[in-house]
């Protein structure tokens, strides 16, 4: 599979199933790549997978979740003992494990929805940000459990993904009000809790998410409202520990195309921001409900 085929397959995955996140689509692509790889040794296989990951990182998608998902995938499939087998058998086992990993990932959203649902009380109002499939799932789960609540959602410029989310919520019969991004402070006194998704969870326990999340978090902190993050564990990123916004790597902040076209990045708009762990009340993950300080513990367990 060359670069073009890989990217086409990835694009196809994203289009066929709008309900999967880009990380899952990337994992699908990696498995396909693994199957078709001409490499004759395990080291060669690993190299070709790494190449594939670097191609996927160049697409204009959420780089954070793709890199974390792929990294964990690599780690998961290579943790098997492949001692006395020939290469073809080993490759089959790797593909098998890849599918197993995909299954595990597919089940995580339901688990999170079940964990997060009790935190939504009857009659409360929730502020959320941008479009997140796992937040949507949690809200739908709560609505299915006969909870009545209303949603305020920021329109989330520049791509106005908040409106897409609002449409989906309206279809499910949940009352939604779309607010301006700039109205976050205005609306904060009216809401009972803030619930957002995340593109990545970093080592410090903070999150990387669509631009505007950080301002919601600071407003929520000042107003003493709980700030919940709903996120799957395949979005945990190791080796990234931003000290502040400036310290977040550029490839996460901007699209690959922006990085190439802009010579001075101070004129480009960042797509994501970093929310430090002090602003986060709890994270609902498929590993359980965690405090931000437990994230690093889980990461050490995952990689050590």
């Amino acid at each position: 599979m060359n670069k073009e085929d890989t990217l086409n397959y990835f694009q196809q995955c994203m289009e066929e199933n709008a309900d999967i996140s880009s990380a899952v689509a990337a994992i699908h692509t990696l498995i396909e790549h693994l199957k078709l790889s001409p490499a004759g040794t395990l080291a060669g296989l690993r190299e070709s997978l790494k190449d594939c990951i670097s191609w996927l990182m160049e697409t204009d998608n959420s780089v954070t979740s793709i890199s974390s998902g792929c990294e964990l995938f690599l780690r998961f499939i290579t943790l098997t003992a492949l001692d006395q087998m020939n290469f073809q058998e080993s490759k089959n086992i790797l593909v098998e494990r890849g599918k197993m990993y995909l299954q595990k990932v597919a089940g995580s959203r339901d688990k999170i929805a079940a964990l997060g649902e009790p935190f939504i009380r009857d009659g409360c109002s929730i502020l959320t940000h941008s479009h997140s499939r796992v937040v949507l799932k949690t809200l739908l789960e709560a609505a299915a459990n006969k909870k009545r609540f209303n949603i305020y959602i920021t329109e989330s410029c520049p791509d106005r993904s908040g409106e897409k989310m609002a449409r989906k919520l309206r279809e499910a019969g949940i009352p939604v009000v779309v607010i301006l991004d700039a109205a976050a402070g205005y609306i904060m006194e009216k809401v009972d809790l803030v619930m957002v998704g995340a593109e990545g969870v970093v080592e410090s326990g903070g999150i990387i998410n669509k631009i505007g999340t950080y301002q919601l978090a600071t407003c929520a902190k000042i107003a003493n409202k709980p700030f919940y993050v709903v996120v799957e564990s395949f979005k945990f990123v190791r080796f990234i520990y931003p000290l502040n916004q400036q310290d977040v790597p550029n490839e996460y902040k901007y699209h690959a195309s922006t990085l190439k076209s802009f010579s001075d990045l101070s004129h480009a708009h960042p797509l994501i921001d970093y929310t430090p762990p002090t602003y986060i009340t709890l994270l609902f993950t498929d590993l359980g409900v965690l405090t931000p300080s437990a994230i690093s513990d889980e990461l050490i367990k995952l990689y050590c």
């Binding site: 080592e203 190791r238 520990y241 513990d297």
Partner: peptide
């Protein structure tokens, strides 16, 4: 072993 928050000392 990497960059950690202070609170991870017990895990290490």
């Amino acid at each position: 072993i990497g960059m950690l928050p202070c609170t991870s000392v017990p895990v290490v």
